[in-house]
Design a protein around this nucleic acid. Sequence first.
DNA 1: TACCTGACATAAT
DNA 2: CATTATGCCAGGT
Length: 121
Amino acid sequence: MDFYKRVTLVCQHIPEGRAATYGQIALLCGKPRNARQVGYALNRGLAGERAPAHRVVNAKGILSGAAAFESHDMQKLLLEQEGVAVAMTPDGWRVELKRFGWDHTLEDALWFRAEFEKRGI
DNA sequence: TACCTGACATAAT
DNA sequence: CATTATGCCAGGT
């Protein structure tokens, strides 16, 4: 199982205008306890250029990876550009997951599982 | 091998 | 809500 390739595939399917959490992606990749590795993958560019890393936030909705972008407010701008409201809080910029979180379905999860199998990753 | 680090998560307080 | 403690696990040194 190639965890990072799975991360790439899942990230590429996060809908525009929505934000996914590290834990959610790890779960969809079949490794529910590897949330930190999702962050590692994005930070090191292991998910490729095509993966919308700006749509990935932590469980509280904080843009914890903002510092890894070209400019410190790039992630915020990219999100706002697709309609996601970002507010400044004591912890940093945050999106309301209640409104902009990616509520993936069971079907999504099953599709990914099948796709991993099909691609042998 | 042993220890440290980190784009994390969750339960307890 | 906020703060703390624990668990987690791939990578790097």
